[in-house]
Each structure stands twice: as C-alpha cells, then as structure tokens.
Amino acid sequence: MSVDANLAATAAQAPADKAGKLKMSGNGVNVFYGDKQALFDVDLNIYKNQVISLIGPSGCGKSTFLRCLNRMNDTIDVCKVTGKIVLDEQDIYDKNIDVVELRARVGMVFQKPNPFPKSIYENVAYGPRIHGMTRSKDELDDLVTSSLRRAGLWEEVKDRLDQPGTGLSGGQQQRLCIARAIATQPEVLLMDEPCSALDPIATAIIEELIDELRANFTIVIVTHSMQQAARVSQKTAFFHLGKLIEEGPTDQIFTNPINKKTQDYITGRIG
C-alpha cells in the first residue's frame, strides 16, 4: 500500500479526533467464549505514538479486547473473534497473516512479571532468537543491551546479565519483561495491568518508562487504576459489560465524561 493511500485512509478514519496517525483499529469486534459473548461490537482507533488506556470493572472485556490485538485469544480453543482488527491497513485476522510475525510486531507485557527461569540475558534474547532477528552474537548482544537500556534496566543489571531473571525485584522483573517485549522490535506494545503487582515506587518507574517508550511505540494499556490511566495515557476508553461505553481524550474522560456509566465508574459509584 502506498504512503499516499495510507495517509488518505488515515485521514478518513481519524476525523477531528487527534492529529496522530492511525496505527490499529477495531471495527465491530465481537468476541465469544463458547456461547458467551464477551465483547459486543467494539469500534476503537489506536493512534501512533499515543498511549491509550482501557479501563472498566473486572470482566468488562478490556483485557479480552487487548488480547485480540495480538491474537493471544487464539490459544483459547472456545474463543471466537468476529469483526475486523486492522494493523497498518492489514486485517490481522486474515488467513495470510502469520501469528508469529504479528506477535513480534505487537508485543505484550503481562499483569504479573513473568520472566522465564533463565538468565537476564537469555530472557531478553528469547524473542530475537525465536524470530532469527540477528545474524551474529555481537548483533544479539547489541540488541539485548539496547533493549535493556530502553527499558531503563541496563544500569541495574549490566554486571549480572548471566544471573537468573527471577532473582530481580518485582519492579525490575516487570521492566525485564518490557525489555523482552521491546527486543523483538515491536510497533505496538500491549500491557495488561503491568503495575498491579508492584509497589508505588516501582509503579512510578514503570509509568515514567511508559511515557518515554511512547516516542517509539504505540502503547495500549489495561489498568484497574484510574489514576494510572489518567497519568500515563493520552486517550482513555471505558468498557462495561463487554461494550465500549465511551472513549476520548484522557482529560475529558476524567473531568467531564459524557456517559453516565463512565461518570459512575470513575467516581466510584456502582455502575
């Protein structure tokens, strides 16, 4: 697809919303777990170099939507996704799409830090090795170093790369997982409640990191902490009972939400 067509499509799909370039979008996304429908007709645009946070009560479908974006739901047999999810003009549920390549482009960081029981180095090198991204050991070393640097972990671990990643503190482990995800050089980074298992200081470090990463990645973050959503994201989307209730600039969502349900949820009333 040519650059012009790309721009034209972006302009068409992103009206007066934000000046950024459209990176991913969901159109009429429905998700079923067996007979149960988990997501209803979700339309959501995700713009380049922006942080968008998905908020909502437990079981509202925000994580489900997140996992649709890199087809992590494929691992669940009973899960069925309809509708269209587009990454740079390509339907990621198209038959020709290689899931392995998709997940390299759309990285993921999970709720609980989950470093592999390997050394710090091997943890970061895991993705590049699987995708055969480097030609030599030196190249791999460079990639590991730069990933750790971008994740803000390099200074803390540079002397003990051969030690197990599980020996790090919770916040460091989560940054290691971010470094691991960055190492595959993704374009979009999905974060599923990345700070829910961390203390406030570690959380602040990760939030600072998210803000820095925004320059190079598009970030979608699911969070239960509304303060966190307010702090880190430029756009916020509120999910409730499997439906996208409201989305908009974070400022507006948190000071003047349009929808009554959004208002009730973010002010701590039963929604």
């Binding site: 691992t75 390549e101 999970f110 029981p117 699987i130 995708h131 995800a181």
Partner: peptide
C-alpha cells in the same frame, strides 16, 4: 504466565515447550 509470555513474543507451542516449559 510463562506460556503466555512466550506466546506473546511469538513463540510457537513446541518452541515454548522446548525453551521454556521443559527447562522450568
């Protein structure tokens, strides 16, 4: 979570088993 982490990086099932699950 280890399986998810590996799958999230684009590893196939057998790669995950060989490189993550069995060592763990």
């Amino acid at each position: 979570s280890l399986r998810d982490g590996s799958a999230g990086l684009g590893a196939t099932k057998s790669e995950t088993i060989r490189r993550v699950i069995l060592p763990a």
